Amino acid sequence: MTETTADEVLAELASLDDPQFRKVNAKHGDDHGVNLGKLRAIAKRLKTQHDLARSLWATGDTAARLVALLICRPKAFGRDELDSMLRDARAPKVHDWLVNYVVKKNPHAEELRNSWSADPDPVVASAGWALTSERVTKSPDTLNLSGLLDVIEAQMKDAPGRLQWAMNHCLAMIGIEHAEHRPRALEIGEHLEVLKDYPTPPNCTSPYAPIWINEMVSRQPAS
């Protein structure tokens, strides 16, 4: 049985490209037209193939990079390699999957979180804040939550879009997960009014932090 090549995967992805999906994805900054269910099916069939993943990433093709992130070995990437990949991840979906499916599972995640959070590139910084939100939820012991709230209060209002979104998510997670910081998190959200008017579909929770925090806390079991 011959191994699948990057060119074969690219050809299959090209055959699945749908102009309607491409049009919808373009609104979110993603330049591909492959249904994600079909893309995931390709990755499921390929299973884990780290060398192929590297080859697909090297093509620069957005759909191919999404497949790469699903078939790679997250722990096999070096710190500098992940840093380069993030800075080269232009499409928002590639950026999100790289952070959530790969970096979070990599042994260099904490080191990258620290360096990315203070990066002058707001898109890179947003990845650092996404990793911080993960720690706020799962391993907050050594985090300075008050310090994080200080930074959010001072910088979130004027932060560029993706960075603002990531900082707002962190604000909400602090408010939801840590009752002792909840009043201040709510106060910051109410004062800054970030995403207050964000259009939210019916039956979905608003990303406006005070609404988000109160809604999720109301769902928590009584202690």
Results as ranks from 00 to 15, higher is better:
Thr2Phe: 03
Thr5Ile: 08
Thr5Arg: 01
Ala6Gln: 11
Asp7Leu: 03
Leu10Asn: 03
Glu12Ala: 14
Leu16Val: 09
Asp17Gln: 14
Ala26Thr: 07
Lys27Phe: 03
Asp31Pro: 02
Gly33Thr: 08
Val34Met: 09
Gly37His: 09
Lys38Met: 07
Ile42Phe: 04
Lys44Ala: 14
Leu46Trp: 03
Thr48Leu: 11
Thr48His: 04
His50Phe: 04
Ala53His: 01
Thr62Asn: 07
Ala63Asn: 06
Ala63Ser: 13
Arg65Tyr: 04
Ala68Leu: 06
Ala68Ser: 09
Leu70Tyr: 00
Arg73Ile: 01
Pro74Ser: 02
Pro74Tyr: 01
Ala76Gln: 05
Gly78Glu: 11
Asp80Glu: 15
Leu82Gln: 07
Asp83Ser: 15
Met85Asp: 04
Met85Gly: 03
Arg87Phe: 04
Arg90Phe: 13
Ala91Asn: 10
Pro92Ala: 07
Lys93Gly: 00
Asp96Asn: 10
Trp97His: 06
Leu98Gln: 06
Val102Tyr: 04
His108Cys: 11
Glu111Thr: 15
Leu112Phe: 08
Arg113Lys: 14
Ser117Trp: 12
Ser117Gln: 14
Ala118Lys: 11
Pro120Tyr: 02
Pro120Asp: 13
Pro120Trp: 08
Ala125Tyr: 05
Ala127Cys: 05
Ala127Phe: 04
Gly128Leu: 14
Gly128His: 09
Leu131Cys: 10
Leu131Gln: 08
Leu131Phe: 06
Thr132Pro: 02
Ser133Glu: 15
Ser133Pro: 02
Arg135Phe: 11
Arg135Pro: 00
Arg135Cys: 09
Lys138Glu: 11
Lys138Ser: 13
Lys138Asn: 15
Ser139Met: 06
Thr142Lys: 14
Leu143Val: 12
Asn144Ser: 15
Leu149Glu: 03
Asp150Phe: 13
Val151Ala: 08
Ile152Phe: 12
Gln155Arg: 15
Met156Arg: 02
Lys157Thr: 07
Asp158Met: 07
Asp158Arg: 10
Ala159Lys: 07
Pro160Phe: 10
Leu163Trp: 08
Gln164Trp: 00
Gln164Gly: 11
Trp165Arg: 10
Trp165Tyr: 06
Asn168Phe: 10
Cys170Met: 01
Ala172Asn: 10
Gly175Glu: 05
Ile176Phe: 11
His178Glu: 13
Ala179Leu: 10
Arg184Gln: 12
Leu186Tyr: 01
Glu187Leu: 09
Glu187Tyr: 02
Ile188Glu: 04
Ile188Phe: 13
Glu190Tyr: 06
Tyr198Lys: 13
Pro199Ser: 10
Pro199Met: 09
Pro201Leu: 14
Ser206Tyr: 02
Ser206Lys: 10
Pro207Phe: 04
Tyr208Cys: 09
Ala209Gly: 00
Ile211Tyr: 02
Asn214Trp: 00
Val217Met: 03
Ser218Leu: 06
Ser223His: 06
Ser223Tyr: 07
